[in-house]
Amino acid sequence: MRAAHRRAPGEPRAVGYLYVLPALVVYGAFLLYPFGQSVWLSLLHWDGLTAATWAGSDNYRDLFTDPALRAPFWHALVLLLFYSALPVALGLLLAATMSRIRVRGLTFFRVVLFLPQVLAMVVVGVAWRSILAPDGLLNDTLDAVGLDALSRPWLGDSTWALPAVGGIGTWVGTGLCMVLFLAGVQRIPRERYEAARIDGAGAFREFWSVTLPGLRAEVAVALTLTIVAGLRNFDLIYITTSGGPGNATSVPAYEVYHRAFETNQVGSAAAVAVALALMIFTLTVAVSKLVEGRRG
C-alpha cells in the first residue's frame, strides 16, 4: 500500500527542506524581508537620518491627494499605452497579415526584432537620447522631408517628453510582441482558416474569429511582460529625462529613487514602491483572469 502511494505526485521526504533551505535563506533575507520592511517604512515619516515617526496611512493618502504624487501614476498609465498596448496592436497587425502564408528567413527577422530586448536599458537610453536630441536623427529626418515645423527638442519639451519616452518603450516592446505572435500564429491549425474561408469570412472577420482567439495565450504573455517592463522603467527615465522637464516624465519607479535617495522622503518613497508593486501584481492577475475567463 505504501508503495502505491509513494510515486505520485512526489516522494514524501523531509529531506526536501534541506534542498530548499539555502535558496530560501538568500531569498528570504534579500527579497522577502526587505519587501516587508518597505511596507513598514511606508507607514512612517522618515528622512533617513533622524528618528522616524508613525505616519499610519498618511503616505498612502498622499498618493491620492498630492498632485506631485498623482502625476507619476498618471504618467505610468499613459506610458502603458506606449509600452504595452501599442506593441501588442502592432504585433497583431503583423500576425493578421501573415496568418495565411509561410515566411522565409524567419530566424533572421526574429533575431533582429528581438534585439532591443537584450540591450541594457542604459544603452537604449543613450542611443535614443542621440536620436531625440535637437540635432538628432529624428529632427534631421523631419527637416529632410520638409516637416521642419514638427522638429523640436523632444526630451526637453514639456508636452512631448512623455510621448517621446513612450516611443522608446514602443521600440523596445514591439519586437517582443511580434516574435511571440509570429510563433503563435504558425501554431494555429490551417483547417480553421480554410473553414473560415468556406464560410465566406473576409480578412477582417478571419482575424477576429480565428487569428485573435488562436493567439489568446500569446497576447496574455505579451501583455504581462510589457506591463511589468513598462512599470519597472526606472533606468530609461533616469538616463533620458530624470523625470523632467519639470515633472513631465516622472513615473513611480523614478519617484521611489528620487524621494528615498535625493530628497530624504523615505516613508513616502516606500509608499510609492509598495503601491507600484500592488499595481504590477493587480494588472498581472487581471490579465491572466481576463484570458482564462474567456476560455471555453
Partner: peptide
Amino acid sequence: MRFPGATVLFYLFVLGLTLPQEALVIP
C-alpha cells in the same frame, strides 16, 4: 519531493517574479 508547506514555499518564490526591485531597494 513532497513535504508539508512545499506549495506555499514555491508560491513565495513565484511571487518574486512580479515584485519590482523598486519595492526592495530602499530597505
